[in-house]
Simulated assay, not measured.
Amino acid sequence: MKKGVLLVNLGSPDSPEPKDVKKYLGEFLMDERVIDVPLWARTLIVKGIILNTRPKASAAAYKKIWWDEGSPLIVISERLQHKIQKQTTLPVALAMRYGSMTIKKGLQQLVNQGVEKVFLIPLYPQFAMATTETILVLAENIRNEHFPNLKIEDLPAFYNNQNYIDVLSNSIENHLKGKTYEHVLFSYHGVPERHIRKRDITKSHCQINGICCKTPSKAHEFCYRHQCLEVTRLVAEKLNLKEGSYSTSFQSRLGFDPWLQPYTDRTIERLGKEGLKSMAIVTPAFVSDCLETLEEIAMEGEEIFHEMGGSEFTTVPCLNDDDEWVNLLAKWINTWAHSKPETV
């Protein structure tokens, strides 16, 4: 069987213009695994409210971070793809869950090259129904409808893979060399608390009480909160961060339902009010810099910190196309090419 690889990231509007942002937000927010309410309610919320109010503001945010080459997320993902392609003989395609670079196009590109078996790599370290799961479900639906003879295997969440932790830790350490910081904040993309409970395969473990994530359970395989906290713990251990000199928070909440806490913006505000003068912030839920890291964290976060009296605010870039990260992905791909994905 000829094998190939499909890298899948979140996606981006085609441009930072309101009409393109509105189209992108419509597809993104109408996903039942992003806003997981009945269709009638989701339609009312998204098409009746959000798409009539948010696109203009979101477009302004995208314009702040847009590069001459295009969307940072797309450009970075393409750089990653090209670097990986140089380290493997397998064809490597790139797709996005939302937007014009569809998963169907990515699979079609591989099929056109004779690929019969695909290694699908969701570019998310942690499992979440709004990220990994929606990619896997859509890919399977597309396979069934358009490519019934194609076989797809996926890379499981790699949040606790020691090689990944080493690469992430090295990247953080390298970017913080010579920088002043009293506290390191690990900020992850937030999800509603109900997402955590919905994916509890034990139906009884997840209480979101500060204890369950530290108690061994089969639920952790699909628990986003546990996996985020575990990344923080493992990286802090690797970098010898002292207790109290680092913490975890969650960003980008939407609506009024309870989301994972503490919230990043309020944490930055609190740290500033407590007299902290220098801090660094890391965003390990993303492997590629995007709107949430470049605008929400690097711009809005810094503004909040300065308003609260802080002075030094250091944003650590995502792994992007870092050579160590490229090498690790290429290693996983080449291992898969000659064995089962469980050995990655």
Score class of each variant (00 low, 15 high):
residue 243 E to C: 06
residue 206 C to N: 10
residue 189 H to S: 03
residue 202 T to M: 12
residue 231 V to R: 07
residue 196 I to S: 07
residue 220 H to K: 08
residue 244 G to S: 04
residue 198 K to T: 14
residue 224 Y to V: 10
residue 215 T to P: 06
residue 197 R to W: 12
residue 236 A to F: 05
residue 216 P to R: 04
residue 220 H to M: 06
residue 207 Q to I: 08
residue 238 K to Y: 09
residue 199 R to T: 14
residue 210 G to E: 03
residue 201 I to F: 03
residue 208 I to F: 09
residue 191 V to I: 15
residue 233 R to Q: 07
residue 241 L to H: 11
residue 185 L to I: 12
residue 231 V to L: 13
residue 231 V to Y: 01
residue 243 E to T: 12
residue 227 Q to F: 08
residue 186 F to T: 00
residue 189 H to E: 03
residue 225 R to C: 09
residue 214 K to G: 05
residue 202 T to I: 11
residue 223 C to E: 05
residue 209 N to F: 03
residue 217 S to F: 07
residue 212 C to M: 00
residue 194 R to V: 07
residue 198 K to D: 14
residue 202 T to F: 09
residue 222 F to S: 15
residue 222 F to N: 03
residue 244 G to P: 02
residue 216 P to V: 02
residue 218 K to R: 15
residue 208 I to G: 00
residue 201 I to G: 04
residue 202 T to S: 15
residue 229 L to D: 13
residue 222 F to L: 15
residue 239 L to G: 09
residue 194 R to A: 00
residue 191 V to R: 03
residue 213 C to T: 04
residue 230 E to T: 15
residue 215 T to C: 03
residue 219 A to L: 00
residue 240 N to T: 06
residue 220 H to N: 05
residue 224 Y to S: 13
residue 220 H to P: 09
residue 193 E to K: 14
residue 209 N to Y: 02
residue 211 I to P: 02
residue 195 H to K: 00
residue 245 S to M: 01
residue 223 C to I: 04
residue 233 R to C: 01
residue 186 F to H: 06
residue 244 G to F: 03
residue 220 H to Y: 01
residue 222 F to Q: 11
residue 243 E to W: 00
residue 218 K to F: 14
residue 199 R to V: 05
residue 217 S to Y: 04
residue 232 T to A: 09
residue 209 N to G: 13
residue 238 K to I: 12
residue 246 Y to S: 13
residue 225 R to T: 11
residue 190 G to F: 09
residue 201 I to N: 11
residue 197 R to Q: 13
residue 238 K to D: 02
residue 230 E to N: 15
residue 247 S to G: 11
residue 212 C to T: 02
residue 206 C to P: 02
residue 204 S to H: 10
residue 238 K to V: 06
residue 244 G to W: 00
residue 245 S to K: 11
residue 189 H to I: 00
residue 241 L to V: 08
residue 200 D to C: 11
residue 214 K to Q: 12
residue 200 D to R: 11
residue 210 G to F: 01
residue 192 P to F: 10
residue 247 S to Q: 14
residue 192 P to E: 09
residue 205 H to C: 12
residue 219 A to C: 14
residue 200 D to A: 01
residue 234 L to Q: 14
residue 219 A to Y: 06
residue 203 K to N: 15
residue 189 H to G: 02
residue 232 T to F: 03
residue 210 G to H: 04
residue 193 E to L: 07
residue 187 S to E: 00
residue 190 G to A: 10
residue 190 G to E: 11
residue 188 Y to P: 05
residue 201 I to M: 06
residue 240 N to I: 05
residue 186 F to C: 03
residue 236 A to D: 07
residue 211 I to N: 12
residue 223 C to L: 07
residue 220 H to Q: 13
residue 202 T to Y: 04
residue 206 C to V: 11
residue 195 H to W: 05
residue 236 A to K: 00
residue 234 L to N: 08
residue 240 N to P: 03
residue 204 S to M: 12
residue 212 C to K: 14
residue 205 H to T: 09
residue 220 H to W: 13
residue 223 C to V: 12
residue 193 E to V: 08
residue 229 L to W: 01
residue 218 K to C: 06
residue 195 H to P: 07
residue 213 C to H: 11
residue 192 P to M: 06
